[in-house]
Computed example of a mutant assay.
Amino acid sequence: MQTFASIAELKAFEGKEAGPSAWHEVTQAQVQLFADATGDHQWIHLDPERARRESPFGGPVAHGFLTLSLLPMLTSEITRFEGTKARINYGLDRVRFTGPVPVGARLRIRATLRAVSEETDGGVKVAWLVTFEIEGGARPVCVAETLAKLHF
């Protein structure tokens, strides 16, 4: 767990990696709940038998956006911000879904602090390069540059 209590601590960590998080299993129940929440009911996610027969992945896979939506949970395992008045999700600069996440697979993240820039309102904008790994996988399944604004 990497803890930050000041802008100076963030700046000192620039270019370094936090993590990895713990492994987290992606379940069919999560996939179903995500499909219901988003209206994305494609069979490749929700019909295990058909996915085993017809999918190029040999079974059901998680939605890419479900993988990305695990970011707050997984990030909270590798970073902590003490004394902040506000932490604001500022968005994403680039996201790539570079591989499938089969239902039942376990994911974790690593995050490299790419940039810390002071804002005119007294806060800072931080950019993290986050890599989602699948247990036993040879390459990442998602890579995203995330942005946040912090006020200490």
Rank of each mutant, 00 (worst) to 15 (best):
residue 123 G to V: 08
residue 81 F to E: 04
residue 125 K to D: 00
residue 85 K to H: 02
residue 30 Q to G: 03
residue 70 L to W: 15
residue 101 V to A: 01
residue 35 A to Q: 08
residue 121 D to P: 08
residue 51 A to I: 02
residue 17 E to F: 02
residue 3 T to V: 12
residue 105 A to M: 04
residue 51 A to M: 09
residue 64 G to K: 10
residue 40 D to Y: 10
residue 109 I to N: 05
residue 52 R to C: 00
residue 68 L to M: 12
residue 97 F to R: 10
residue 120 T to R: 15
residue 49 E to T: 02
residue 23 W to S: 12
residue 148 A to L: 05
residue 24 H to C: 03
residue 25 E to P: 05
residue 147 L to N: 06
residue 2 Q to D: 06
residue 2 Q to G: 04
residue 102 P to Q: 14
residue 46 L to W: 07
residue 90 Y to V: 00
residue 89 N to G: 10
residue 27 T to V: 06
residue 23 W to Y: 13
residue 72 P to K: 02
residue 65 F to G: 08
residue 80 R to W: 01
residue 99 G to Y: 10
residue 117 S to V: 08
residue 26 V to H: 11
residue 79 T to G: 00
residue 95 V to E: 04
residue 62 A to C: 12
residue 105 A to N: 07
residue 102 P to W: 11
residue 128 W to K: 10
residue 44 I to S: 03
residue 151 H to G: 00
residue 72 P to W: 01
residue 134 I to V: 15
residue 125 K to N: 06
residue 63 H to K: 13
residue 138 A to C: 06
residue 8 A to C: 07
residue 106 R to C: 15
residue 115 A to H: 11
residue 95 V to P: 08
residue 67 T to S: 15
residue 50 R to Y: 03
residue 14 E to F: 05
residue 25 E to A: 15
residue 128 W to I: 10
residue 149 K to Q: 06
residue 87 R to A: 02
residue 145 E to A: 13
residue 134 I to S: 13
residue 35 A to N: 07
residue 16 K to H: 11
residue 137 G to A: 15
residue 48 P to G: 13
residue 37 A to P: 14
residue 96 R to H: 13
residue 130 V to T: 15
residue 47 D to K: 10
residue 133 E to N: 12
residue 88 I to W: 01
residue 1 M to I: 06
residue 147 L to S: 09
residue 136 G to P: 14
residue 87 R to D: 00
residue 122 G to T: 09
residue 88 I to C: 01
residue 117 S to D: 14
residue 131 T to Q: 12
residue 41 H to G: 05
residue 144 A to P: 09
residue 72 P to G: 01
